[in-house]
């Protein structure tokens, strides 16, 4: 303590007060330098690279090269999985959060669900894939039990864990909990008086949800759904471990490009990445636009 006081004499504090404006920037410069070096520049560099040929000249050829059936289908499957798992995850996450917060269930259920959601939303990547292979894979527990005891062969129905539906089902394992974690505080923010005020003004429960509760929750629901979308769209590990390279989604394609597993064309890789940035960027822009429309009443 005494040492601290010695090493930082008072005049330092005074000079900081007098030239506050110019010095204040110093305090946040490490953060901005870090963000620039490890977040902004690398992303920008890729975006520029997408418009360069191997010699560094400007070209649109990379983007044109994306126009192949396999790449288009990769984007398409990625989008499908991301949208499906985001919408389904948002819906079921909302229902579960609603059930626990407003459904009149026992008190202990809520902290249990919240803690579990904290765990499950972070239980992504490879272990999640392993868990679903062990459960719904060809020799997984549920598959085997269904065949042995119910005489029902899941894989005869066309189901395959290494497919659009399998991947979506697996992603839901972290999407639903993520929705629960984010939407529960928003549900808590619904004041009991709003429901009571609308009831006493003659509104039914449905009318209350349609005119009051959902409009209030809308920005949160929208924002979280977008987050779920980005979350699924950028996921690599789960899909990679689950499907190897048998299911062509764009992250796996990009992963293979970077690793040089397939024919190595760096600039095509940049274009792939640019496509991903554009998709998440556009969805974010759409979100910001929708939010500004629905949120005029917010501080």
């Amino acid at each position: 303590m005494a040492q601290d006081i010695q090493t930082s004499p008072k005049p330092a504090g005074i000079s900081l007060e007098t030239s506050q404006k110019s010095w204040a920037w110093i305090g946040v410069s490490p953060f901005f330098i870090f963000a620039l070096l490890f977040l902004i520049l690398p992303t920008l560099d890729l975006m520029i690279g997408a418009f360069q040929d191997a010699q560094g000249g400007f070209t649109l050829q990379n983007l044109a090269n994306l126009n192949t059936p396999s790449i288009k289908s990769a984007y398409w499957i990625s989008l499908k999985v991301s949208v499906a798992s985001a919408l389904t995850g948002a819906l079921f996450g909302f229902l579960l959060a609603y059930a626990v917060v407003l459904g009149g269930l026992p008190q202990w259920l809520r902290p249990t669900l919240m803690t579990f959601s904290g765990v499950a939303s972070n239980f992504a990547g490879l272990p999640l894939a392993f868990a679903f292979i062990a459960t719904l894979g060809r020799v997984g527990l549920v598959t085997v039990l269904l065949r042995e005891f119910a005489g029902f062969d899941l894989y005869r129905t066309g189901f395959n864990l290494l497919s659009f539906w399998g991947l979506t089902l697996t992603y839901l394992y972290f999407q639903i909990p993520l929705m629960i974690l984010i939407i529960t505080p928003a549900l808590d923010g619904l004041k009991r008086e709003w429901r009571e005020a609308s009831e006493i003004l003659g509104a039914s429960r449905l009318q209350y949800w349609r005119h009051v509760a959902l409009p209030i929750l809308w920005p949160s629901i929208l924002g979280t759904t977008l987050l779920l979308f980005a979350n699924a769209f950028g996921a690599v590990a789960t899909a990679y471990a689950l499907t190897g390279s048998s299911l062509n989604i764009v992250t796996i394609l990009l992963y293979a490009q970077i690793r040089g597993d397939v024919l190595h064309d760096q600039n095509l890789g940049y274009a792939l990445a640019l496509g991903m940035i554009l998709i998440t960027g556009v969805s974010n822009g759409a979100y910001i636009w929708l939010r500004s429309r629905s949120e005029r009443w917010l501080r």
Binding site: E193, W194, E196, A197, I200, H211, V212, I216, W297, L298
Partner: peptide, 11 residues
Amino acid sequence: MVFQSYALFPN
């Protein structure tokens, strides 16, 4: 009914 917390619909 008028509530202590006003309970106006914020939206």
